[in-house]
Design a protein around this nucleic acid. Structure first.
Length: 581
RNA sequence: CGGGGAAUAGCUCAGCCUGGUAGAGCACUGCGUUCGGGACGCAGGGGCCGGAGGUUCGAAUCCUCUUUCCCCGACCA
């Protein structure tokens, strides 16, 4: 490709609404153009990277025995109604009607359609296992699309679905996909971590997220540097920080804390550590009848240490509370505690509530909590002496850096990550709901055991930039760079020698299968260098009269800026060796 | 969904308070000079100032409505 013929456009300034670095750089490098909120054109430069990501995914999935299909972007409501997700999905799913007033949706994912394929196509256990995947545009009407391709509404995703005859086989399919994902991300060349993730209603331990490590990541991932333990923060288990409860040493006392409504303020006022305070969170769970009318509301008091934070996923697993809990209203709080938020605690309740203590809180002694009276906290609080033991003790907090690892092999560390892949065992949730079955060896129908496996193609491109950039622009991993090599011809318009030498090298690299672009724009060198550094091409060869007079061309890498002067005759072999290394 | 903010040239922004024929830088076109790290000069092209209504002799500017976009929030009392 010649730069003079390519649609190359760069911006010195990013549009003011761009927030994160990948979005700014992709816009500035001319990779994407915004069309609407969370919706982008993929311009030639950007599409090249996207296609390279897709090619690696295709290659590895095909090698792993999966088969590519394409399912429609526009999907009929009927299939979604079979699984009940037409009603459950909420506003995230974009819905519309066709001219006959029939309901359709833009696919946010394709479990229903692929299960429909399976029940029509797969009749016998002899046809199993099967794994179908597609690389397809998805649409999720996010509440707040942002961060460019990192959280767009329209995006490209690879979604694969496996069908197996039993759980064991499904486990093998899962392991196969897990290993395949590792190969894919290794090849793309990103620093990533596979972490255990919450399995939600399905249960089991087969759910892993593939997270690209980047400071700007939206997810917190927890790992143990001394072992294999790695989990999403939603899942990471928090152990009690003290093995056993200490003895009560000081008396219960109601202490004035005027205007100090947060644990931090109270700890400050009383000159004690935040870890001696207990934070009170009030939740409510509603029970409704068949008509959806709320018939009963239970109020819950959750206690975590002042320096800890509530983990809502864990809270949702408390028996009786359920994942559809909500935060209590102020009226409910006053009704049960006789006090406004800010001074709440488990002592002196006006009406009974269910009390859940975090493991660490359950082992605390002489702690501080709200007195259920405005401007007062209790100090010297002890379980058993000053109040009954909690109704439940559970892990309900987020782990923090330095917590003991659940596998007992050291302490936990936390990194930020960008979720670019997810492998998930689905069980027969969808096959049952849609009555998708096959005849097993015993001649009896069985529901498919399914798994689903996603990779955010466009998000990978953004994540790669978040992880690899500097003040000049993008630094692509070679595997997904729009071009592997750029040849800059300095003084293109006036030097025939430069043109000849550059063109000869260009042809040589091209015929060696290198993805090379020749900058023949007759631009000033500064402009060329700045453009290609912004775009992030990993290898640059500069050919100019000045060097040629000395019998040299210049070779430079984008990542470390390391420069070599080489004879024109040697340059091709040198670059090819570097690329194939 | 709640609260803020913004909308003027392809991009970044000024002009609005105090109404009077729309500006700058970058980008683009032409000519010339320059030419190994985002050159310079001269000459150009490009915007009915998001849309609708109102006030006024006159509206980018004041008022009302509307659309779109952005930010914060929608758990940690």
């Amino acid at each position: 490709m010649r730069a003079s013929q390519f649609h190359l456009f760069t911006l010195k300034e990013a549009p003011s609404d761009a927030e994160v670095v990948s979005q700014k750089l992709m816009l500035r490098a001319g990779m994407i153009r915004k069309v609407a909120a969370g919706i982008y054109n993929y311009m030639p430069m950007g599409l090249r990277s996207i296609r390279k990501v897709e090619a690696i995914i295709r290659d590895e999935l095909d090698r792993a025995g999966a088969m590519e299909i394409v399912m429609p972007i526009v999907q009929p409501a009927e299939l979604w109604q079979e699984t009940g997700r037409w009603d459950k999905m909420g506003a995230e799913m974009l819905r519309f009607k066709d001219r006959h007033d029939r309901d359709f949706a833009m696919q946010p994912t394709s479990e229903e359609v692929v299960t429909d394929i399976a029940r029509q196509e797969l009749k016998s256990y002899r046809q199993l296992p099967k794994n179908f995947y597609q690389i397809q545009t998805k649409f999720r009407d996010e509440r707040r699309p942002r961060f460019g391709v990192m959280r767009g509404r329209e995006f490209v995703m690879k979604d694969a679905y496996s069908f197996d005859r039993d759980m064991d086989a499904a486990g093998r399919s899962y392991d196969n996909m897990y290993a395949t994902y590792c190969r894919i991300f290794d090849r793309i060349g990103l620093e990533y971590r596979a972490v255990a993730a919450d399995t939600g209603a399905i249960g089991g331990d087969r759910s892993h997220e593939f997270q690209v490590i980047a400071e700007t990541g939206e997810d917190a991932i927890v790992y143990c540097p001394d072992s294999d333990y790695a989990a999403n923060i939603e899942l990471a288990e928090a152990l009690a920080l003290q093995a056993a409860r200490g003895e009560a040493r000081i008396a219960l006392e109601k202490t004035p804390t005027p205007g100090k409504a947060t644990c931090a303020d109270v700890a400050d006022l009383l000159q004690v550590g935040l870890d001696t305070t207990v934070k009170s969170l009030v939740l409510a769970s509603d029970e409704s009848d068949d008509k959806g009318e709320i018939v009963k509301t239970t109020v819950w008091l959750l206690l975590v240490r002042g320096d800890h934070s509530l983990n809502e996923v864990k809270a949702g697993k408390i028996e009786g509370l359920g994942s559809d809990f909500r935060f209590a209203t102020e009226a409910e709080i006053i009704e049960h505690f006789g006090c406004k938020p800010g001074y709440l605690g488990p002592i002196g309740l006006r009406k009974p509530v269910r009390i859940v203590a975090d493991r660490s809180v359950a082992n605390m002694s002489d702690f501080i909590c709200g007195a259920n009276e405005e401007d007062f906290h209790y100090t010297g609080v002890n379980w058993g002496r000053d109040l009954p033991e909690p109704d439940f003790v559970a892990d309900i907090r987020n782990v923090v850096e330095g917590d003991p690892s659940p596998d007992g092999k050291g302490v936990l560390a936390i990194q930020r990550g960008i979720e670019v892949g997810h492998v998930f065992y689905l069980g027969n949730k969808y096959s049952k709901a849609m009555n998708a079955s096959f005849l097993d060896i015993d001649g009896k129908p069985k529901h498919f055991e399914m798994g689903c496996y996603g990779i955010g193609v466009t998000r990978i491109v953004g994540a790669a930039i978040e992880q690899n950039h500097d003040e000049r622009g993008i630094i692509w991993p070679a595997a997904i760079a729009p071009f592997e090599v750029v040849i800059c011809g300095v003084g293109w318009g006036k030097s025939e020698l430069v043109r000849d030498e550059a063109t000869r090298l260009y042809e040589t690299l091209k015929s060696a299968g290198i993805d090379v672009i020749l900058d023949d724009r007759d631009e000033r060198p500064g402009v060329m260098f700045a453009d290609w550094e912004l775009i992030g091409i990993p290898h640059r060869i500069t050919i100019g009269d000045r060097g040629l007079k000395e019998g040299m061309v210049e070779y430079q890498t984008r990542r470390d800026g390391e420069q070599h002067k080489l004879a024109p005759a040697d340059i091709a072999a040198h670059v090819i060796a570097r690329l194939r290394a």
